[in-house]
Nucleic acid binder design. Structure first.
Lengths: 242, 242
DNA sequence: TGACCCGTTTGACCTAGATCAAGGATCACC
DNA sequence: GGTGATCCTTGATCTAGGTCAAACGGGTCA
């Protein structure tokens, strides 16, 4: 892929062209977006926006991974979503942000200024239709996660998380069922509503049970996919986060 | 209010006209919906749709309360949302339902057949824009709830729940801070990711602390709103489920 | 009026996962 | 190739909330 994140690059060649907020747009509509966009890069670990900040731009994640999270008054953190390439940041119609957005890895955003983009939402049905679709998908994912947070055991949470990681992992270079965790143990804990110790212990237990192996902290291979899916606690038909 | 739920009644007089999926529609567009709608009533406790069922109709809750929930293989239940008047059921673009929908009280639905309504979503921007808005609002609410489920203590969960109930309770007859719980202890437990015993104990504790009193199982009055909000665990600015 | 049923409360006990604490491993940078 | 810094693992202990069990209204129905 030779796309460079430069305003002169055409949207039509963008890697997320067919999945992002612009997915339904035809050539003319795409040209409008093309003229509005700008790119921004954020280094791993850096904040992108804080809860309560004024939303100056809407953006799509083009590359990298970001997290959405909330911190309670005493410092407890709950992650409420992972933003992968093509995911959208910002709620048309609101001026501030409701959750902290942080770059988990180096992140590249494709940004649009708020007012002009809100005008597009009003004027270009393909945009509002796409935002609608994406919001409804996210809503389903959020509700699946509510079930996990409210009712699953630590082991079920970990199994569900790993199952989600391997379902989403489309990187084809990983041969033969090898995958890479996008998060540290602490981040996984904040995503699953656990402590990092519990995450570590559950992973060790699954290692001992030969459900998976780690080649290093981040990279693992599933040895027994059936056992993993059995351990998720989900009702037979496991239609998980798409 | 003398609106009777009969197909001959005009949408323009509907009690949820300005909040539901039709909120942005102008007179002409409303007429389209008017010709498509039908009403359905479900008795308290009855299922409305099960997870996996084919979605034959989209609907709006016109009166009553319904719940969205999921059951794990061994029977654990997690509620993932409450559907109040004007809330929408169904995901345009999908053929099956992802969660169980159950009538908590007697419920009246305003229904539209799937295909015709999906055509409207394509052709009438005011519809997709409104569904987008509603989905984004729900998404925020779901994420707030994820924080509660993942990180709050039993006491904080109960306080947050009560705070939500009194914020949403617009019934004006309840004079002087008196409110009514829409759910049984068990339903509250399934909503908060707790057991019914813990819900009962926490309510008793707050009663003992003079934060609230119950006139009967369902009806309570908040005596110390500051203490209640203090107990939610939320960061100062508590922008909760709208 | 009494028997029953449902939702609820309260008590006694137990356990999954948190907390506290002490090392290991791996990486980056000099 | 040594020295922090970061991330991770593992052990010992503690506790919030779950589980099990009994009993308490308050409603309904005969």
């Amino acid at each position: 892929m030779t796309f460079v994140f430069n305003e002169r690059e055409s949207c039509s060649k963008c890697p997320i062209r067919h999945r992002a907020v612009c997915a339904r747009c035809d050539t003319d509509e795409l040209e409008l977006l093309d003229g509005m966009k700008s790119y921004q890069t954020i280094a791993a670990g850096e904040p992108i926006i804080w809860r309560g900040d004024e939303l100056t731009h809407f953006s799509s994640v083009v590359a990298g991974i970001a997290s959405l999270s909330r911190t309670l008054e005493d410092g407890r953190i709950q992650m409420v979503g992972l933003l992968l390439p093509s995911d959208f940041i910002g709620r048309p119609g609101r001026e501030t942000v409701e959750f902290d957005v942080t770059a988990v890895s180096d992140v590249t955003l494709c940004r649009f200024e708020r007012k002009p983009f809100e005008n597009l939402v009003e004027d270009v049905p393909h945009i509002s239709q796409r935002v609608m679709e994406m919001a409804l998908d996210e809503l389903n994912a959020a509700r699946e996660w509510m079930v996990l947070l409210g009712r699953k055991t630590a082991r079920e949470k970990i199994a569900t998380f790993l199952d989600m990681v391997i379902r989403r992992d489309t990187t084809p270079l990983h041969g033969a069922g090898s995958h890479s965790l996008p998060l540290t143990r602490e981040e996984i804990a904040n995503f699953l509503g656990l402590t990092l110790e519990t995450v570590s212990r559950q992973l060790s237990a699954m290692k001992k049970e030969k459900i998976l192996t780690f080649s290093d902290r981040r990279n693992f291979t599933i040895l027994d996919l059936d056992a993993l899916q059995e351990a998720t606690g989900d009702d037979t038909d496991n239609a998980l986060i798409a």
